[in-house]
Design a protein around this nucleic acid. Structure first.
Lengths: 193, 193
DNA sequence: ATTGTGTGTCAACAGTTGTTGGCATACGGT
DNA sequence: ACCGTATGCCAACAACTGTTGACACACAAT
């Protein structure tokens, strides 16, 4: 959907489009889907609400554009098998500290069915593919990916959404040390060990 | 806040109050705070919207009453130390399969600051107290409780809110087997082992 | 200079929301 | 039988929502 086929002549309104998108991400991240109003977003971007409609069609369209998101998972086949957990948790923390897109998606996924659908797509497709890439038993791949998602999203939920004090205060490095072994076991271990 | 001091004479409207509360929990759980309208809740309870206001004051008041929630954590001091993780995850799964209160609270906590505050209270106070009860190093108690919350809430989020297929399809017994060791390590282990 | 298209503002719409006050009725105590 | 109060419904308000159409201006091409 994003224009990339033809090198479309740069439009004069590109700056406006970008401002809208930036404001939308901020508002969706801070307030969630329903509380983030088009009027507030337009006000942040210092333009008229009707511009949002012209460039993105509807509020859903705007959200779809603002929540475009790629986990950018590294190729796990190239990672030493013993460090899979650490590489993964480090990647996730780095990926969304400073990028509020995932927070926006996370908040919206709780109440907006479309956002939940998108979140499923991202984590099922991208994470499952990454887990499959380093070659576990295909029968358990989906379940391993799901377990990783549960811990990783639980971290994001408690640290960025609910803001549980212990999870906010703990330095990222300590979180890596605690959570890496969990992911490692979900990826390469068995329930028993 | 719940009437328990005086054995208040049973009011004729108790059935209505209960119906409102039941409908509210369902709607908040299914739709989240902002999409659950008072009109819809009243319609489910087969009464007039104005009754909701009379008995619960406001939408926030209704939510506060509907999201009253106790984790009912068992006394961890009475649990064999080696089974702490298993007991905990089993308790959580049993506690909220079939009780939609926590799902309502979870959904609402994403967008409603008051709900997030309440969720913090529940998990910080109740979980931290339970973890402290079996006597770990007080300096690490809060962090251990936070880590447990991150995994447990991540499970709830992926299984009941986003409904990630692998997490929905996995039987509860398998989830216990996979997640119990994680909680066990968060409670009694160190980052390294 | 004139045309056409892209960019922007303004005002208004129709629907929904939480919330309120008035009014009818049924109940419980006397 | 009477009266006060609790219970319930109805209609309406004011605010806010996403969305739309008409209109003004600026730019690029001819």
């Amino acid at each position: 959907m994003t224009a990339s086929a033809q090198p479309t002549h740069p439009r004069r309104s590109d700056a406006t489009r970008a401002a809208i998108l930036r404001a939308a991400r901020e508002r969706f991240a801070a307030d969630g889907y329903e509380r983030a109003t088009i009027r507030a977003i337009a006000s942040d971007a210092q333009i008229d609400p009707s511009m949002v409609m012209r460039y993105y069609g509807s509020k859903e369209g705007l959200f779809a554009a603002a929540a475009e998101f790629d986990l950018r998972l590294p190729d796990l086949a190239a990672v030493p098998p013993a460090h899979l957990g650490e590489v993964l948790i480090r990647h996730f923390l780095a990926r969304w500290e400073g990028d509020e897109t995932l927070v926006a998606l996370l908040r919206a996924a709780s109440t907006n069915p479309g956002a939940a659908e998108r979140m499923r797509g991202i984590f099922v497709a991208q994470l499952t593919a990454a887990v499959a890439a380093f070659g576990t038993d295909p029968a358990t791949t989906a379940r391993r990916a799901g377990l990783v998602a549960s811990q990783v999203l639980g971290l994001a939920f408690t640290r960025y959404i609910v803001r549980l004090p212990p999870m906010v205060d703990t330095p990222a490095e300590d979180l890596v040390a605690w959570i890496a072994p969990t992911l490692q076991r979900y990826l390469t271990g068995t329930p028993e060990n």
